[in-house]
């Protein structure tokens, strides 16, 4: 029942977007919306691992970059393959990579996991930077994809991903995720395989992030190590769900949107070195101090309190 509402509002949002596109031709705003959507997809992927399993990853740029490079490399070697097909291949490759890497990574929890994922990011980035076969620091130029097809496609995929994540966390597997996060001991007692559950979350998370990466390659028609594998990519993927509210689908959607908009505003308006870092840091501290769970759950709590107070008065 609930899911039907989500699908309907998703379709409505897509129609709204198409109307918007037909009124204003694909200009700056459409471009910017597509850019936000990429990070919303990656943020939803991160949220599956960081929010629902509770393992913070500092290295999601790895999966993002693998998605992007799976699109970029065949083009760089002059192969003529359908780019959209490559985007989905990239998602699958990122998922496979996550499956392999989950073996060492998921043996630890908490911040050793965090340091391990950060290290993974550094390892993959330095391998790409030093190997000429992967075009080193030069990067690869793609021929630009038709914007009028690409932008609606990105928005449609974003909506589909959001609905998929919402559907997933209401299934058995989603409940398992939460059980593993909240009380691991009890989860093991009722027969949940903790390692398998975590690995599932990591792989799905990597697939979504890889999808975002592949779309990023089409969107920017350029892939290079610092844009795809860089630490900043990891940080922006991570910050969105964390500020918006980890463990909630809507929260991380809002969070990613807010973070990207603020970051771009800070870059274009505050013309001071490091201004956007200051803004992000202050935002992070404020959110953590005011409501530990993030903006969206905090707002929901506040609304509940207001309603209760209103009911009491009556």
């Amino acid at each position: 029942m609930n899911l039907k509402k989500w699908i309907l509002s998703g379709i409505f949002a897509f129609i709204l977007y198409l109307v918007f596109l037909s009124i204003t031709d694909a200009g700056f705003t459409a471009n910017f919306i597509a850019y936000i959507c990429l990070f919303v997809i990656a943020g939803q992927g991160w949220n599956l691992l960081g929010g629902y399993i509770g393992e913070i990853s500092f290295g999601h740029a790895v999966f993002f970059g693998i998605g992007a490079y799976t699109v970029g490399l065949p083009v760089g070697y002059g192969l003529d393959i359908n780019l959209l097909l490559l985007v989905f291949c990239g998602a699958i490759v990122a998922g496979l990579f996550a499956l392999i890497i989950s073996y060492p990574l998921l043996r630890v929890q908490g911040f050793p996991f965090l340091v391990g994922t950060y290290g993974l990011g550094i390892v993959v980035k330095s391998i790409v930077v030093v190997s000429p076969a992967l075009f080193a620091t030069r990067g690869i130029f793609l021929k630009s994809y038709d914007k009028e097809i690409l932008y609606p496609l990105i928005v449609a995929i974003t909506i589909a991903v959001i609905i998929f994540v919402k559907w997933l966390v209401e299934q058995d597997i989603g409940l398992k995720f939460k059980a593993v996060r909240d009380v691991p001991v009890a989860a093991r007692m009722i027969g949940i395989n903790i390692y398998k559950t975590k690995a599932t979350a990591l792989v799905i998370s990597a697939v979504l992030t890889g999808l975002a990466g592949g779309l990023f390659a089409l969107y920017g028609s350029f892939v290079n190590p610092s844009a795809c594998f860089g630490e900043n990519t990891s940080i922006f993927i991570l910050l969105g769900p964390y500020i918006g509210g980890i463990g909630t689908v809507l929260g991380s959607l809002f969070g990613s949107t807010i973070v990207i908009i603020l970051q771009e505003l800070a870059r274009s308006l505050i013309k001071v070195n490091g201004g956007h870092y200051m803004l992000m840091g202050l935002l992070l501290i404020t959110v953590m101090m005011v409501s530990k769970e993030g903006i969206y759950p905090g707002l929901v709590k506040l609304m509940g309190k207001v309603k209760k107070a209103g009911a009491k008065r009556e």
Partner: peptide, 26 residues
Amino acid sequence: VWQGRYQAQIMVTWGIGMCIMAAEFM
């Protein structure tokens, strides 16, 4: 710890660290 103590601490200190870094940049 299971209430997310480390996560919260990491995020706050990282936010402060980011502010320090931004101040140095400025």
